[in-house]
């Protein structure tokens, strides 16, 4: 018993000494190449499963003002920049959002109101928003080969950094080759962080099962837990867009945001 305690104390001391020894050394080149290959193989596997993947999930949203009730949702991925997210319960749909490279649809049945925004219309950068949503859900962050050469260790992760369309992206990759955290810095907005807390199997490939999206200002945090994921075939283009009735009121995005905010204000 006493010997065991001594060993534990020694281990703690060794760990503490390691903790005082400065930043961990950069990964050896061979390790890095192995990690890159592992990451690329898993990334390719997830990309191959993108189209037609559907997941049932639970969502929790916290804003700086309050914590909202959790909700059930379903997302469907139509491609690298096509995602539909429907927040619904056993009794109907609360909102239906479809983001694609060329358009964004938001349908709120309770309001009988919809918004359609086309690519290039402010304030959204649609191609980036749709791709961001898909990459977040599937953890398909495309790391350029050059970024691996300049990687750095951080805690137990290897962090790669690259610039894409003016955005700075930092991806923390675990030794398994799976993304563990991602940070996006864009001029004029708070950095956004995605933390992958767990992966589960999807057709034999690890798929994000629990993740959080938050802004570093602490004004918004979305927690996601995937309960079931499957592939349902790609289907036609209509599948990735809400069926908005003809009589729906088409709103200016700002009007709908304001209306929703008023409705949700206690």
């Amino acid at each position: 018993m006493r010997r065991g305690a001594a060993r534990a104390a020694a281990a703690v001391l060794l760990l503490a000494a390691g903790g005082c020894a400065g930043p961990p050394p950069a990964p050896a080149l061979l390790d890095l190449e192995r990690l890159e290959r592992r990451h690329e193989a898993l990334l390719d596997a997830r990309r191959a499963r993108l189209r037609g993947t559907v997941a049932e999930l639970s969502l929790w949203l916290e804003t700086s003002a309050r914590r909202w009730p959790g909700a059930h949702a379903t997302y469907g991925i139509g491609g690298p920049d096509t995602l539909r997210l429907r927040v619904a319960s056993s009794f109907g749909t609360a909102l239906d959002l479809a983001a694609a490279a060329d358009s964004l649809w938001l349908w709120v049945p309770a309001e009988r109101a919809a918004v359609r925004a086309a690519a290039g219309e402010p304030p959204l950068s649609l191609p980036a928003a749709a791709a961001f949503a898909v990459r977040t859900a599937a953890a398909t962050w495309p790391v350029p080969a050059t970024a691996w050469r300049a990687s750095r260790p951080a805690d137990t992760l290897t962090v790669v950094r690259w610039i894409e369309a003016g955005d700075t992206l930092e991806l923390g990759v675990g030794s398994s080759g799976l993304p563990r955290r991602m940070r996006l810095v864009r001029s004029g907005m708070r950095p956004v962080r995605v933390t992958y807390l767990g992966y589960g199997p999807h057709e034999g490939t690890p798929w994000p099962e629990r993740f959080e999206v938050e802004d570093e200002g602490g004004s918004l945090r979305l927690s996601v837990r995937v309960r079931r994921v499957w592939r349902a075939g790609a289907g036609d283009a209509e599948r990735w867009r809400p069926q908005v009735p003809n009589e729906a009121e088409m709103l200016d995005p700002e009007v709908l945001w304001r209306r929703i905010a008023e409705e949700w204000t206690p």
């Binding site: 309050r66 914590r67 909202w68 009730p69 319960s89 056993s90 009794f91 109907g92 609360a94 709120v108 049945p109 309770a110 309001e111 929703i260 409705e263 949700w264 204000t265 206690p266």
Partner: peptide, 19 residues
């Protein structure tokens, strides 16, 4: 305990119609 009005109640309202 939190209070929410309106939109979240759409589910129960729809449920009510369903029932």
């Amino acid at each position: 305990m939190d209070t929410v009005s309106g939109a979240q109640a759409a589910g129960p309202r729809a449920a009510a119609a369903v029932l």
